[in-house]
Structure formats: structure tokens, C-alpha cells
Design a binder for these strands. Structure first.
Lengths: 197, 197
DNA sequence: ATATTAAACGGACCGTGGTCCGTTTACTCT
DNA sequence: AGAGTAAACGGACCACGGTCCGTTTAATAT
């Protein structure tokens, strides 16, 4: 290896970079005109003028592609509740942050709907996805901060399960439940869980 | 229509009945030797000596087949908490029944694992399945009985989401969490939700 | 017994996500 | 510039769940 900036990972080959660009562009266009359900891996490959193998080499799976597509908004969302202003970010009491981050999550899920859904069914269950793990840890941390003692990890998981995208979308889209009611119910839930100890 | 016992639905044709029998038997055998994952619709059809179309005519989908396979135990489970002895059945206070039925559900899910999982992904989401609806109603009823006022329907859904089979199985099988801890966490959750009002 | 008919049947067919492997191509080293 | 190499490429291929539709068959009416 010659002197200079040592790349953390091997530099991406130029053709690979070009194709990744093309694929993401193509994916967004296909979704725009046919919805997430209309995006199949075959179509994407053809539309982007690329072999099917290339698509899977890049993203691993359909879910992986969806994760990549969501990456920007996901990162943005995460940094909002980790470094942003209260009540979402640090500075507010735990309970308030808990309430705020549930509400934020509900808004996020409703905004990106099917994309989140499709991204969730990644390989090996939807629980090993890094974003989900981070989310759990965050809730756990807030629970601890509020003095919740018995098994904060498990309770965090339970609370997170409550915000399962498929459930939220089903309630809103199929049963016509207003998002505000979901947020109120979340607030009630976490308040009761945290209250007194 | 000639006199006699009027069949509620048109009587099942003899060949249909025979094939249903054969298919269920074959399905159980295939699962026994290859697990739920090893049961594909093609294999089932071939193994039962029946056309593929017949399989789908009977059960509608793979999930439908799983539901049928679970039917007995499911019915049994349901009648236990609807008509059985306390604390699961009627007669005990709402909170105790809530705790007991969560524990029962956890045991049920852990016992039938992949079968429940496969049965869940029925058409149009896993929330319209009759069994799920009944389950929600039951929890809602118990919440009401304990005097939980704000949106018992939504809260019941949240609590039910907490017992999502995929989550439970993931915790136990991948992370090695002991079932007792899950039950304790459930007990803590519902107790806090119901407590005071 | 025979005719009629609605239901059940079977398996070819389709679209999907995902894999495999022989071929091509962008970099690097001399 | 030329050779060598690891990576990227592409598309044929696979298994799966699910559909379609021409054919067979069990039940009934005559």
C-alpha cells in the first residue's frame, strides 16, 4: 500500500459507483410512478440498464434496497432524537422524551409507509436491523432514566412493538384511526408504565 | 330439497372430503420430518398425490393451511380463556385474567412456534384474521372491566402487539431469553397499565 | 340406466425474490 | 504501455406461492 490516505474500506470501483447511482435513481422513479409494490427487482434491473445480479450484489435483498432508500430520512430522524433540541433530544425529562419520540416515530412511519414496511422484512427477522436495535436501546435508556427498574430491556422491546409499522399503518389506513389518537394512546401507555418508580 | 336435516352449507362431495383428509395427514407428516419451513405447497401436493390446484382450492393459501392445522389447538386455547376455570376463565378479577391470558398466549406461541408464524401472514395483513380480532376484543373487555377508560380498543391492540409471535420467538430462540422473564414483563406491563383508574 | 350439472380436479403457467458462475473491466504494479 | 488480478458484471437458472382453465367426476333428476 503506498502512502496517502488509507481508505477504511477498499475504494469503490468507478463502475460500481456509477451503477449504484443509476439504481437508486431508477428505484425512486419506479416507486414514484408505481408505488413501492410496483418496484420489483427484475424491473429495477431492466429499468436501470443493469444485470439482476448487480442489483443483489449492491443491496443484498429487496429489503436491503429499501433500507438504503430510507437511509437519509432514517439518519435524520435518529439524529433528531439523539442530538436535537428537546423534548425529542437530550435536555428534557425522560418521560417527555419518551412521549415525544413515540410521536416522532408514528409520524415517521405514516410518512414513509410502505417503504418502512418493505425495509422491515430484512433477513433474519426484523429485529436485527441496526436501526431497530438503536431504537430499542434509546427507549431502554429513557426508561432507566425515569427509574424504571425491572428488565428495562424487555419493556423497551414491548413498547417498541407497540409502534410496529404494520400495525400503525393498518389502523390508520384500514380502520381510519386518526394519528392523533395513536399518539394519545402511546402517551397514555408510557406515562402509566413509568409512573411511580 | 328433500325433507331431513337441512345442511347449513352444501354437503361436501366425497372426493373433496377424502382429499382434505389426505392433505392434512400429509401436511402433518411433512412438518414432522422437515419442519414447517420444509412444507411447500408443491411438495404437499405431490406427497398427498393430489394436484396443486386442489391444495389451493381447499386452503386458499399457505397461511390458510397453517390456520387449519392450528385450528384444534387454537379453538381449545380460546375456549379455555372464554369458558374455562379462573384465573384464565371468567370468575377472577380482570387484572388476574389479563395476566393469565398473556401467560397462556406466550406458552401457546412458544409451543406452536413456526406454525403460528406461518399462519399469521394471512392475506391482507395479520390483523384481520378472526382469531386475532377475538383476542383483541377479549383484552379490551378485560381492560374495560378493570375500569380502563381512555380508548380501550387501542390499548388492547397495543398490549396484543406486545405478544407478537415473531418478537417472542426471536427473544427466546435468538437471544435466549427465558419464557418466565417474558411472562414477568407482561405481568408488570398490564399491572402498570391498569393500576389506578 | 341415462342425462345433466355443478363442483372438484390437475398441472401447465406466471411473477417474484434470490443464487450461481463464466465473462468483462477497472485499477495497480512494473 | 502491458500484464496481472481482484472486483464487478449479467443473465440464465432455481424454488416458491399462487392462478387459470380445460377435463373429470360425484351427486341428482328423469
Amino acid at each position: 500500500m503506498r502512502p496517502g490516505v488509507a481508505p477504511v474500506t477498499a475504494a469503490e470501483r468507478s463502475d460500481a459507483a456509477r451503477n449504484r447511482e443509476r439504481l437508486l435513481r431508477a428505484a425512486r422513479e419506479l416507486i414514484e410512478e408505481g408505488g413501492v409494490a410496483g418496484l420489483t427487482m427484475d424491473r429495477l434491473a431492466e429499468y436501470a440498464g443493469v444485470g439482476k445480479g448487480t442489483v443483489f450484489r449492491r443491496f443484498g435483498s429487496r429489503a436491503g434496497l429499501m433500507v438504503t432508500l430510507l437511509n437519509d430520512s432514517e439518519t435524520d430522524f435518529q439524529s433528531r432524537f439523539m442530538f436535537g433540541p428537546p423534548p425529542l433530544g437530550p435536555g428534557a425529562p425522560g418521560l417527555e422524551r419518551l412521549i415525544a419520540c413515540g410521536i416522532g416515530r408514528i409520524q415517521y412511519v405514516l410518512a414513509f409507509g410502505d417503504l418502512v414496511l418493505a425495509a422491515e422484512m430484512a433477513s433474519r427477522g426484523r429485529f436485527e436491523v441496526p436501526a431497530a436495535a438503536l431504537w430499542n436501546r434509546h427507549i431502554e435508556m429513557l426508561l432507566r432514566q425515569e427509574g424504571y427498574a425491572p428488565e428495562p430491556g424487555l419493556m423497551a422491546g414491548s413498547l417498541a412493538a407497540t409502534l410496529d409499522p404494520e400495525r400503525l399503518l393498518n389502523l390508520v389506513r384500514v380502520h381510519g384511526v386518526a394519528p392523533e389518537r395513536l399518539m394519545a394512546s402511546w402517551q397514555d401507555l408510557v406515562t402509566r408504565v413509568v409512573r411511580g418508580a
